[in-house]
């Protein structure tokens, strides 16, 4: 009976592929529907502001503190290596480029997914499990416009700002360690940094990255919440999936974006 077993295995592969594709297609249509319902949500801007508060303002502490520590550690480790080559003055370049190009958007995105994305999924999932979404539809209130779109846009607005704050605090932390603690020259730290960091190439590209990650995390969070099985277990596994999928997608998207953005840059 090995032939039968092979057929069963192949069938399983086929079923899994189809399930993945179907979910992907559903997510795409869901994305289109959310965008379609967005104008309706913007008419009540207060809803989106409220979500910016929950996703952005309440994430500030973790973003600011992590950014500062990442910058401080980068400065310590970077100094250790640069010192061997007598290139202490390049510490500012090292820290600023790694933060603005990569660490700012990526680490802020990962933190944002775990801090805000998971909360959004759990909230929408629980609303679904307790039939609140169905109740809204009964009252002719579209849950996509009332619940999903504000959370989606709140995340998109918050994420780039959080990434910029992360990078800023990181540079500040590196300055504390490099200039105040180790005693590098203040002028060389900032001067070399400004000479090496380009507005168009580095800062704008980093900003674009953080916007893309914001869209990714927000979409995954609202989709997983909306798609969650309406049980306690379903909501918990949806929350886990949000964090895992966000992290993987951010890292993969970061690689693709980096390949396109920094291909010709020889710094």
């Amino acid at each position: 009976m090995p032939a039968e077993r092979v057929v069963r295995g192949v069938r399983k592969v086929g079923a899994t592929t189809l399930a993945i594709l179907q979910r992907l297609g559903f997510a795409t249509r869901f994305f289109a529907a959310v965008v379609w319902h967005s104008p309706q949500a913007f008419r009540r801007l207060q809803l989106t502001l409220r979500e910016i508060y929950f996703a952005g303002v309440l994430s500030l502490v973790i973003i600011l503190v992590s950014g500062m520590f990442v910058g401080m550690v980068l400065a310590l480790q970077g100094y250790d290596v640069l010192n061997r080559y007598g290139a202490n003055d390049s510490l500012g370049i090292l820290v600023a480029l790694s933060l603005v190009r990569e660490l700012g958007p990526v680490v802020a995105g990962l933190l944002f997914a775990s801090r805000a994305g998971s909360a959004i999924t759990a909230e929408i999932g629980l609303m679904k499990a307790t039939d609140q979404l169905a109740a809204m539809e009964m009252m002719a209130v579209d849950p996509l416009a009332r619940v999903v779109a504000p959370r989606f846009w709140g995340g998109i607005v918050s994420m780039p700002l959080l990434a910029a704050l992360f990078s800023t605090l990181g540079v500040f932390g590196a300055w504390l360690v490099g200039v105040k603690l180790i005693g590098l020259d203040n002028g060389a730290f900032w001067g070399n940094m400004q000479a090496a960091v380009d507005f168009r190439e580095d800062i704008v590209n980093g900003f674009i990255k953080s916007v893309v990650f914001g869209v990714i995390v927000s979409l995954i969070a609202v989709f997983e919440g909306y798609d969650a099985k309406p049980t306690a277990e379903g909501v918990s596994s949806a929350t886990t999936r949000t964090v895992v999928e966000s992290a993987l997608t951010i890292l993969a998207a970061d690689f693709v974006l980096t390949v396109f953005m920094f291909r010709g840059v020889g710094v």
Binding site: I52, V100, P160, L161, T168, V171, M193, Q194, I203
Partner: peptide, 18 residues
């Protein structure tokens, strides 16, 4: 939040970048 976020972007553009 929005103001300090925009402030951070301006800081990155002017002080860190060129």
């Amino acid at each position: 939040f929005v103001l300090i976020g925009i402030g951070a972007l301006i800081f990155l553009s002017l002080r860190v970048g060129n």
